[in-house]
Nucleic acid binder design. Structure first.
Lengths: 263, 263
DNA sequence: TCAAAAGTGTTCCGAATACACCCATGC
DNA sequence: GCATGGGTGTATTCGGAACACTTTTGA
């Protein structure tokens, strides 16, 4: 008799009894070595999928990959991967991002878990959706073994996507739009030094409406969460704009004091 | 040779080769009948946990159960259950709620998925957190086979909880507080007919600060999402208050027109 | 000198705040 | 009558919207 310990169950293999394992029973999460017909055994696949947002030329973009394997071979999809047995969900998501882009320590947020029985054509796979915000200017996609190619797509002009990735993407966009109005996380889409107009244009792209220049400046500067730098934009054919940095420390202090970001 | 189809993998049992299954390989989600050492095989447990919110005597309460089984036997915990192989996540959550309370078609919201490797002492169990808002006045807890007893606890005075349920609960409360300011879902905690003061007191309990009576009324009535009824409170030793109902249809229309609830 | 964007100032309006006051009911 | 909560009115303040204007740079 051969005993196998895995992460949720204990299996016993035996020539006579095909399968005995701990599993969910009628009265308990765990019944020790409950015998069951082999075809009643079930497991789930667990994966993470990442919506990677970027900002280029005034447009919000998302990074997609072309699948190199079935199912949906050749189609565009979000990048994702199965979660390892000893891996936390956020680590799995970070790994996916790093493998594809080479970027570490990027802002990431879990936004929803998708688990429809039929969302995967082959099996039951539950996937946890994360989105990340990258300053895509300093990013060079790495040819991954999973995918033929990767590319940035304007969120207003998306190709057909594999699985239920379109739904995942929509939910991610919705959550991002909501988050960005109440938390200063949208800044992650800009380079660390930016001008006020750049910030304004970013927010206009994110939220889908225009701000008055004067009022936007007034409001954001009054928050005192931007650190003015002694630098300006170079080589522009007009008055060069001052550069600013997001002041994380200051924001943390203000947050504790009860300040809440709002745009 | 015995072939077993389950939800994510195909297993082949064989006297010589202990285990062959499809699983994640270096280049793909799915490699057919990839041979691997038996102890490298892994699966996850997937569950849902429900934070059931109620409102009684001006306090926000949460429904907890006392575990009747190990691990954490005897300790208070959120109510939850493993997800069935052919069951959607939201259905699993609704079933859990119905089994415990007998209530159907209750407002529910998925708020976060908890998947730390060590969150469960026995195995790897990933759990999807849902919260529901019930009008607890018309609720009578059903003795469940899982739990010795159930009880409502003020969210400001919680017992020690099993697993990471305290973290789950905190995240649920945080998400609820945030949601309730931007969507009129908090109404689900009240009976269908309520007075303006009852609504105000609910919001004060939810958000943790006071409103000015006059201003609160003005604001909520100007939204035109409450339907005034030709009824009043009975048997009160003061001027009886008018009863109102939340006007779902009206809200839907306003929402499409761009109205956004804000308190 | 002109184009283009940076950056400032000012008026106007509506919404939020604070607070005062009257109303209906049971005891 | 009076305690209690229901319900209304109003003056003041504050922040946002709209818009006009000046400044600084490169070409």
């Amino acid at each position: 008799m051969l005993k196998v310990k895995n992460t949720i169950s204990t299996f016993i293999l035996n020539k006579n009894l095909p399968f005995i394992c701990t599993m969910k029973g009628p009265n308990s999460y765990y019944i020790s070595e409950y015998r069951l017909p082999i075809n009643e055994y079930f497991i789930f696949g667990l994966s993470v999928d990442c919506v990677i947002f970027g900002y280029q030329e005034g447009e919000i973009k998302v990074l997609l990959v072309q699948r190199s394997l079935d199912p949906f071979k050749g189609q565009w999809a979000l990048i994702g991967d199965l979660v390892e047995p000893e891996q936390n969900l956020s680590d799995a998501a970070n790994n996916v991002l790093e493998k594809l882009t080479g970027l570490k320590e990027i802002y990431m947020k879990q936004f929803f878990t998708f688990g429809s029985v039929d969302r995967h054509p082959l099996d039951r796979v539950v996937t946890v959706g994360y989105y990340s915000l990258v300053n895509s200017i300093c990013y060079n996609p790495i040819a991954s073994s999973w995918a033929k190619s990767a590319g940035w797509f304007n969120i207003k002009d998306l190709p057909e996507l594999a699985f239920d990735h379109y739904d995942i993407l929509l939910k991610g966009i919705e959550t991002l739009k909501n988050e960005v109005r109440h938390k200063p996380t949208g800044f992650n889409l800009l380079p660390s030094k930016f001008t006020l107009l750049e910030l304004q244009l970013l927010y206009e792209a994110l939220l889908g409406y225009k701000f008055d220049k004067s009022n936007f400046r007034k409001k954001i500067l009054e928050m005192k969460i931007l650190k003015p730098l002694n630098e300006t934009k170079k080589n522009v054919s007009h008055r060069p704009a001052k550069l600013f940095e997001f002041d994380v420390e200051r924001y943390k202090v203000l947050e504790v004091e009860g300040f809440s970001f709002q745009l």
